[in-house]
Design a protein around this nucleic acid. Structure first.
Length: 591
DNA sequence: AAAAG
């Protein structure tokens, strides 16, 4: 597909499609991120040992989500990176510090993610202030789930009132000429493709945090034992980088179970009975309870090898194996990689040029076989990804995720009126900021879905919004050697940039994944792509173990007779499997 | 081998 340099297209705000779909039009402007994540607390940030950028970031977070004050005396919470008493005393009188919760910057970040003040004892900044910090911690000391939604009526609204998508006759007068769909003003969108109107409450009491299956354990975005989970995850990550997948999985499982454990862990006895906590990990937890850390995790974090492998594997296209190979070549920094891969530094930099990355990139003949390194997978992706890494490393705030969704669905509806979409991934699980944006699409008319992915990508490309296509696949990518389970949905993994007319435009490139499912498998696709990884994997495991069914994002099949199932809603998928409904925000089984 | 969750 030879794409030409496009002209950016003015895309006005577009209809609201927030997390859900191109609903008709009742633009109910939901609560935007104006709501503060934390109650209005007075936070004081001790600047010592923080660089200017961190100070700015933390202050910004505190201002947006809670409140800051200018001197320590007036504050309830002191945030500091200092860990030694004597050093803190140079900035805050000890008598005052003793009357506050004195915590690390991580407490603020995690509490914001969590949506409320977390218990402080994992975040105590100064050892001598442990007790007073816990005493003055603003966490409400109520159980994490105490209140909220366990209302008696489990029945979803079954108002059969059909909704009609009066397709916002695309506001762009420019593109009106190229509407390929003839005279179709309104498309009937069946109720079941839209999100349930009052959302379905999660009945936490019917779930079971001791279950062996992550899909039965409600796991919040940030849990009360988050720093323990983080330690275990460090070991997991290291194992994964080293190619020790079995070991990595053990740590992943353990971390996942703890993520769902609703109480602050104070003794080993509380958790030894939990699934996947054996003697090995039990020992590590004990160590953690005694010392506040896990020695191996700390050692790993300090090792050059781990830091380097992590850095390399954070680049799109570089996995554990390649990272290790590069390390063995004595490469250590991204600059080393740039030289190795031959990236001209400013070339991909700020110029907005359009690059089509081939699915199977070819080297020029003279290069082939030269480098035994990249057999099979060419390195053009990696060159591109290296050039984009600064942008791609930036996190995307929810509001911008929503804007991207609006822009994309607007384009799609110009192309094919009546499409429905859900923004999935971490966004749907409630993350305040995402690494990338994943959107699942369908159309009520199954016959219209085929080929849509490619058309949409082309259109976004022409409009200058998709700058790179890392991967484009279709239903019929007949893949005889199915390595792992990659669904066979139409999907495009792209690099996206908002049009300059967007109020959110700042020139940052973002990873955007577009997934197209036929309407019968729309909700299985949505579930699969909502994650988390563990949650999804255990739904698959559950379906296999308990029902002899095969579940993945592209459908549900009974194994013995290959009968296919098409649950009409997300809730029905849970029901089919005999699982209780778990809201996406409780599917954070993965750290 | 890698990519998504």
């Amino acid at each position: 597909m030879p794409f030409k340099r496009p002209r950016p297209n003015p895309t006005q705000g577009g209809p609201n499609s927030e997390s859900s779909s191109s609903r008709p039009l009742p633009a109910k402007q939901t609560k935007t991120s104006t709501a503060k994540g934390l109650p209005d607390m007075k936070i004081y940030i001790v600047q010592a040992k923080l660089d200017a950028e961190s100070i700015a970031t933390l202050t910004g977070l505190a201002e947006r989500h809670s409140g800051v004050c200018r001197n320590a005396e007036d504050a309830e919470v002191l945030i500091t990176a200092v860990s030694m008493r004597r050093r803190l005393e140079r900035h805050v009188p000890w008598e005052i510090a003793k009357t506050k919760a004195v915590v690390t910057p991580q407490w603020l970040r995690d509490s914001i993610e969590h949506g409320g003040p977390l218990p402080c004892d994992d975040y105590v900044a100064i050892g001598d202030l442990h007790e007073t910090t816990v005493q003055h911690c603003p966490d409400c000391n109520c159980k994490p789930c105490g209140c909220s939604d366990d209302s008696p009526s489990p029945t979803p609204p079954t108002s059969p009132r059909p909704r009609t998508a009066e397709l916002s006759s695309s506001p762009t007068s420019l593109s009106a000429a190229s509407v390929p769909e003839p005279a179709e003003r309104a498309v009937y969108v069946p109720e079941n493709l839209l999100p349930p109107d009052p959302p379905i409450p999660t009945k936490l009491e019917t779930l079971d945090y001791t279950s062996r299956y992550a899909c039965q354990r409600p796991a919040p975005l940030v849990c009360v034992n988050q720093s323990l989970v983080r330690e275990l995850d460090t070991i997991r990550h290291s194992r994964w980088l080293e190619g020790e997948d079995r070991s990595a999985l053990s740590y992943e499982r353990a971390a996942s179970v703890i993520k769902a454990y609703p109480h602050k862990i104070r003794s080993l006895a509380q958790v030894v009975k939990l699934p996947f906590i054996g003697t090995k990990i039990g020992g590590l937890i004990e160590q953690y309870l005694n010392t506040g850390t896990i020695l191996e995790a700390e050692t790993i974090k300090g090792s050059e090898r781990f830091q380097t492998l992590s850095l390399f594997a954070s680049i799109y296209g570089i996995g554990p194996s390649t990272a290790r190979r590069l390390y063995d070549l004595n490469l250590r920094t991204l600059e080393d990689l740039e030289i190795y891969y031959g990236v001209e530094r400013d070339d991909v930099g700020r110029q907005s040029q359009i690059v089509e990355v081939e699915e199977k990139p070819q080297h020029p003949r003279w290069m082939r076989g030269q480098r035994a390194a990249d057999d099979g997978l060419g390195d053009s992706w990696i060159r591109v990804a290296l050039g984009l890494r600064e942008d791609l490393a930036k996190r995307i705030p929810r509001a911008e995720v929503e804007e991207m969704g609006r822009v994309v669905i607007t384009e799609l509806n110009d192309l094919k009126p009546g499409c429905v979409s859900t923004i999935v991934g971490g966004y749907r699980r409630g993350k305040r900021e995402s690494n990338d944006v994943d959107i699942v699409f369908t159309h009520p008319d199954a016959s219209k879905v085929k080929g849509l992915c490619k058309s949409l990508v082309r259109r976004l490309h022409e409009r200058g919004m998709v700058t790179h296509v890392m991967h484009l696949s279709s239903f019929h990518t007949h893949d005889p050697l199915r390595l792992h389970h990659w669904d066979n949905l139409e999907k495009a993994l792209t690099v996206f940039i908002l049009p300059p007319t967007s109020p959110f435009y700042d020139g940052t490139r973002r990873r955007l994944d577009l997934i197209f499912a036929s309407p019968e498998v729309y909700w299985t696709a949505v579930i699969g792509w909502t994650g988390s990884i563990m949650f999804q994997r255990d739904i698959r495991q559950w379906a296999k173990d308990k029902l002899g069914m095969k579940f993945d994002s592209s459908g549900i099949t009974r194994r013995y007779d290959s009968k296919e199932f098409y649950p009409k809603t997300e809730k029905e998928v849970f029901e089919l499997f005999g699982l209780q409904w778990v809201d996406p925000t409780w599917r954070n089984a993965d750290l």
